[in-house]
Structures are given as structure tokens and as C-alpha cells.
Amino acid sequence: MGVGIRVAGRGDRDEVVRLLDRAFQDDPVSRWVFPGDDHRRATHPRLMAAFTDIVLADGRIDLTEDGAACALWLSVPADPHGSGGTDTDADADEAGDDGFAQMREAVDPANERVELIGRLTAGIHPSDRAHAYLWMIGVDPARQGRGLGTALVRHVLDRCDREGLPAYLEASNARSRALYERLGFETAGRPLELPDGPPMWPMWRDPRS
């Protein structure tokens, strides 16, 4: 049986935030950003809400019909100056604002890791070719292992293949890295080693004919 997928809208915002919060509470990178369990439970939803708002405004969120999984995508053009980063980062620079510092202030002002994770991932983001960027994919923990994440990613990769568009992501744990490898992604360069934290693997997929 196929997985029903639709594009999420503003009315789905709170559902997406709750889903991402459940999916990433115990993710190694989330535990690094918010190392205390009580503090993470209280503050982690704010970061998921910030991510959701960015992608609702500038990208696309695919949501399974049953609300059990979602994928956040951004379309990243080639940067002729090779400065890296996404459209969102560029817009912040043009406005004279520091988007990473603003996110930290909105989410958890005393937590420098909220800002640092954005700066570090932006620093390794490829900029020489336009691509689809899979920012996050979240599956309800009670529904993991049933192919929902694979269906969501393939949904966009099929379009990438038709349009000749590469795709990029950062895998935050070994399990997701293995999934992406099965879908045709390859590790692109050395892992990003978070200070006193887990590795993140930049991964790239060229379109298939």
C-alpha cells in the first residue's frame, strides 16, 4: 500500500512542530544542543517551531496523510560567490541581521549551541550547484521502521531525477545515514564534528537518469 503525502500549509504548523519535537527529542544532535533532559523537553519545541516557520515561508514541508512523518525541504540556488548557506541565510545578511543570533535569542538566549549549530552546518553547506536541501525529516517514534521516511524522501528525489537536480542533507545519526545511502546519497567530505558532541555527515546525491 502506498503512503499518502501532501504539502503542509500554515494550518498544519502546530502538528508539524509537535511531530518534529517527538521525532528529535532523543536525536544525538538535539541532545547536544540541549544537554539537560528537563531543559530539552521544555525548550526543544521552540527550535522545531523556528525551523518549521522558516520552511513554511521559504520552502516546502511534505506531510504524510496520517500525520506520522514529515520532511522539510529548501530549494538552494547556486552561489556564484561560493559563500555557502541557504536563501534564508542570504536574506538575513542582506537585511543586515544575523539570523543565527536571532534564532538563539528567540529559542534559548543563554544557549550558544543553538547559534553554533546553524553556523557550523552553514559552513559546510555546498554552494557551487543548485540543489534540493533536506533540512529535516521526522517520523513519529511509534511509527518508525515502516517505510514512511523512505517514502517521503523518494517523493522528492523522483522529482529531482526528472529535473536533473542534486540533493543534499546532513545526517545526524548512523541509522539515518544508512537510510540515505540506500536512497543514493554519498558522504560528501569529512563529518562535521560538533565540539564535544556527535558527528554529522554531509551527504550529496546526484540525479539519476
Rank of each mutant, 00 (worst) to 15 (best):
P126H: 08
G36P: 01
G99E: 01
A151L: 07
I5C: 12
D140N: 12
A50V: 10
M203E: 01
E112G: 13
A188D: 07
A122V: 06
D98Y: 14
P141Q: 13
V107Q: 00
L19Q: 11
P80S: 15
L19I: 12
T150V: 09
G9C: 10
R175A: 11
D27V: 09
H125R: 07
P141A: 13
D108T: 06
D14Y: 08
V7C: 10
P126Y: 06
M203Y: 02
M200Q: 13
D66F: 04
L116R: 13
R22P: 04
F51Y: 14
D37M: 04
P166W: 05
R6Y: 06
H155N: 04
F34H: 05
S83Q: 12
P195E: 14
P207R: 10
H155A: 06
V55T: 14
M48N: 11
F51A: 15
V76E: 04
H125D: 06
L194Q: 07
C160L: 12
V7W: 03
D140C: 13
D161M: 10
A174N: 02
F24D: 04
D89I: 05
M203I: 00
Y180K: 14
L74D: 07
A69D: 01
P191L: 06
V29H: 01
E94F: 11
V139M: 04
R119E: 09
D98G: 13
G2T: 05
H81L: 15
A42C: 02
D196V: 01
E112P: 13
P28E: 06
A69T: 00
D128L: 11
R159L: 15
I117R: 04
P199Y: 00
G99S: 05
E105A: 15
D58W: 08
V76H: 07
A78M: 12
F34A: 05
P45S: 08
G82D: 13
G59T: 03
G2A: 09
L56C: 07
S83I: 04
V107T: 01
L152H: 02
P191Y: 06
P141C: 11
A92D: 12
V29S: 03
A68R: 11
R146T: 12
T88R: 05
R41K: 11
A23S: 12
R119M: 07
A151T: 01
A69M: 01
E181V: 09
A49V: 02
A95D: 13
S30P: 03
C70L: 11
